[in-house]
Nucleic acid binder design. Sequence first.
DNA 1: CTAGGGTTAG
Length: 730
Amino acid sequence: MAFKLIFSSSFTSKIQKSTAFPIPASFFFNLFKHYCFSSPLGLDRCIEVDDLPQTYYSNSFLASIIDNCTHKRHLNQVHGQLVISGLQQNGFLMTKMVNGSSNIGQLDYAHKLFDKFCDPDVFMWNAIIRAYSRHKLFQDAIEMYRWMRWTRVDPDCYTFPYVLKACTELSDFRLSQLIHGQIFRHGLGLDGFVQNGLVALYAKCGHIDCARVVFDGLHDRTIVSWTSIISGCAQNGKAMEALRMFDKMRKTDVKPDWIALVSIIRAYSDVEDLEQGKSIHGCVIKMGLEDEPDLLISLTALYAKCGQVTVAKQFFDQMEIPNVIIWNAMISGYAKNGHAEEALHLFRDLIARNIKPNDVTVMSAVLACAQVGSLELARWIDDYISKSEHKSDVFVNTALIDMYAKCGSVESASKVFDHISNKDVVVWSAMVVGYGLHGRGLEAIDLYHAMRQAGVCPNDVTFIGLLTACNHSGLVKEGWELFHCMRDYGIEPRHEHYACVVDILGRAGYLDQACNFILKMPIDPGVSVWGALLSACKIHRHVTLGEYAADKLFSLDPYNIGHYVQLSNLYASARMWDRVAKVRVLMREKGLSKDLGYSFIEINGKLEVFSVGDKSHPRAEEIFNELQTLERRLKEAGFVPHTESVLHDLNYEEKEENLCYHSERIAIAYGLISTAPGTTLRITKNLRACINCHSATKLISKLVDREIIVRDSKRFHHFKNGTCSCGDYW
DNA sequence: CTAGGGTTAG
């Protein structure tokens, strides 16, 4: 018997001949592979040759055909051939078909084939589970696994890696434990692949202790095992632990590959250890991996997070293929390091280039807006988000709450808060912190009760918010009680919590109690605690205790300008001018100089910045006329400047010409001449409000009948009708 | 037929 293969063009010229049997299957395979699948056209013609005797379609031949299918049409045709040949119940080939369908994205087709297959064996089950897992339908993958067990087919060592992968994505700890048990029952507890899967799974579920148990029991730790445990620690906020594991790994023969390096770089950027991060960067270069796109992302994130935005930008610029993650790393890096303008510029650039932002991108843009502090900008991004698919993302909404609070509108923050359906502890905490920032302590506490009512358990950050809220509102008793509530939730107070309590007690004048509290602390009091005590001493003019605190601070943190400023302020408040001068000398010896004060005000969407006595603005003359008018009206209203203390108070802006030329006063004057009567003025300044400006602003708000909202370095002040929301307690 | 990574809120 002879037959003809009739193919198109080039093929025809090569082979158009009659031949006699037997022809080896490999001959057909090579022909098919080489010619049929190089173009869809070739295949169409090939399948038309259906008078090929079936005996020559060996399994491996057909399998190779299936492997080379690139289109659903190809699979259909092959399937047709299998049916004709009576091979539709051939497990090997049908498994190939399921794999093939899955590989080209035809999950529905895979499932149809699976459904038509009677009595699937473990290979077939593995194929369908893998198909669902690869298509991110993890719940379905688990369902298939359950069904498989129900049909009493035993899973093997190839089944579990995909089942574990699905569990990992679902982050279901109970299910993980269940499956772990089944792994043991099937005697697969010692399989390396399965064990590595378990390590990664437990780590992602947040049960790093379980991951460690599996990891410690591993006989053969490959780079995958190490990467799983290192990244697991890092993903659970235990970067130090991750790096300790990396140290252990270094003592073995296992060499890191690029995926391991990604995890290690992440751990170093989490702890913001730029030096160590740089040494890993060196490894990357040594291994010739610097062009690996995912390492570019990691390095960008590392340098950006550590504040080296210029270096980060160089890596960012090296990335040629559009990748939203590297944009996210760069945008959030800019936003977190005081380059909000660049962050937003990049965000707009991304949109202009038609790269699709994801939830993380818009969240980073929100962070940038929060940093700018402009309510108008805040409304713009909120508007953008409300029209997008990102409006339901909990990360985005949490950032929005924080942003509105930082831009001065607790009301808008609370509106966002109300619209979130499933509020987690971070959402509640963000709102609590928001109230705290504005000195609305009672509302913060009410929210805390509502949160418990809703069955959400507070965490350490919730209490930071509550304690700062109490602090900003002078709620001593409430703060003290809340601090002791932490124990009920099993939350170990951190330095910040202790510092808040010291702040609360100290500001309210309970200096002895604050001191006792510090002495009884179970952990060594750090900079924040002594700093709180020092500033309390400054308020209450307790020089000896303040000097004691300052002494501690100077040994703990000798190059921080803030502590010297505080001590100097303490002396100034006690009118000890000679000691003020001594501190200044000390500062000069250490080569420290204080930050310049500046204030922002936003008028018609444009941000204006003023420094002390700033005359650089085009409308400077009008501004200074307005300042003088204000000064005159203040005097007429009986305002007495707090000249003496302020002049020596290094915390605030340097004395230049006159107190009324402090930057926020210039910003207020500019705001008054640039906006319609009655418009609220919103000002942001980098330092804390000085006592003189604070008193003056209260009176100005009454004289000009304006609401003036000032965000200083610590909190918000809402000035209205002669009073301030802080109740002069800040 | 199998495993590990990157950006993210208070």
